[in-house]
Write a protein that binds this DNA or RNA. Structure first.
Lengths: 200, 200
DNA sequence: TACCTTTGCTTAACGGTGTTAAATTATTTA
DNA sequence: TAAATAATTTAACACCGTTAAGCAAAGGTA
């Protein structure tokens, strides 16, 4: 019977609907308030139905993560194919990575575990800016007076922080393999002295 | 009556106990499974008591975050004070930042919103390594054959990713100020071409 | 057509969460 | 000792993820 296929197609569809509804909710209210019951509401079913398509809530997040990586791969390949020299291709790929992260904020967050807990708290508490200020001031000390524009210092500060925080994030999200720790510390030291030397 | 002060001291103490218990639980079972009832269990009270010391669960996290930044500041200052030249001081401060992150993993996670969701999933799903492989291969292309050791390519790959992912994380956790977007993109491009040029 | 079986879906429930209000116990004060 | 206040617990609410039981419609079979 051909109705079997129609039903199969409908099932495919609600599977997609579940994923889309999830992403919609996250876009509207953030990862924290994504719940099975809200997803069910959005697809006009009750919660237990979802378990016929996904083993549990984590499985939904995992599938979204997977699709995120597939999408990212596609966009990076596309960016790369617009150039011929490897150097240009590599730069294009990283720019595509960057663009993907902001065009698909929610996906990137679940893919790389970037949370944003306490944005409001951050501005209301002076202690939090302590380390930032210390580093900012020290960088300012290093920059010759004639180049001490806020923009230049800001650029250097962000470059520093990106490298260090990025390396830390990578090492924290992946389980630490003892063997690569030395490499990471080497990357860190190289990067830091590299940036310091770039300050003029 | 001096008993007033003693009681005040006891209250101070359970406040500290709540924070310590929270951190203990997180160290043992992770942020996800930190609950008011578990904290209460650990300090040998019932859950509602906690609300006399903290407005809600978020307030506990915020206080831990604050204390994290205070501790980080102290350690960075200490590191800095061991040197005299600004360049050495700056490097020491970043190394202190690095060391803090791994010596106080849980604090760093709540301070900077670094989650580790799906470590197990990551290894079980090939799609996830797509982008990583693409970049790895492209970097390999750029490295002259005589320098194509795994360690060298790994170093470059991590350096790239650190910069880009770090910048993205920073821009995501802080609310995006439109004005600094240009600076960030400039940092990104500078960093990428800097690393590309450093490949030999 | 009548019966049985399968399917799709919902309701109800369990144990957990953060949080609040009421009740209870202990302590201090008059 | 009695009243007032403080400290703490119990009970409850609304939510969460998840599972088991129940029901109603559809399909197949005699």
């Amino acid at each position: 019977m051909a109705s079997k296929e129609r039903i199969q197609r409908l099932k495919e569809e609600t599977r997609v609907n579940i994923l889309e509804a999830s992403l919609d909710i996250v876009k509207e209210e953030g990862w924290q308030s994504l719940s099975m019951r809200k997803i069910a509401d959005k697809i006009e079913y009750t919660a237990p139905i979802i378990y016929e398509y996904f083993a549990n809530k984590d499985a939904i997040l995992n599938e979204l993560t997977r699709q995120g990586f597939v999408k990212l791969s596609r966009q990076m390949e596309e960016a790369s194919s617009a150039h011929t020299s490897p150097a240009e291709q590599l730069e294009a790929m990283w720019l595509a990575y960057w663009n993907f992260a902001f065009a698909n904020k929610e996906l990137y967050q679940v893919m790389y575990g970037v949370e944003m807990n306490c944005c409001t708290f951050e501005n209301s508490c002076p202690d939090i800016q302590g380390p930032a200020n210390m580093l900012w001031d020290k960088i300012t000390e290093l920059v010759p007076k004639e180049n001490q524009t806020e923009e230049y210092i800001c650029t250097k500060y962000y470059t520093f922080w990106s490298v260090v925080h990025g390396l830390i994030s990578i090492n924290m999200t992946r389980q630490t393999r003892q063997s690569t720790d030395d490499i990471n510390k080497q990357v860190l030291k190289d990067a830091i002295s590299g940036i310091i030397n770039s300050i003029k």
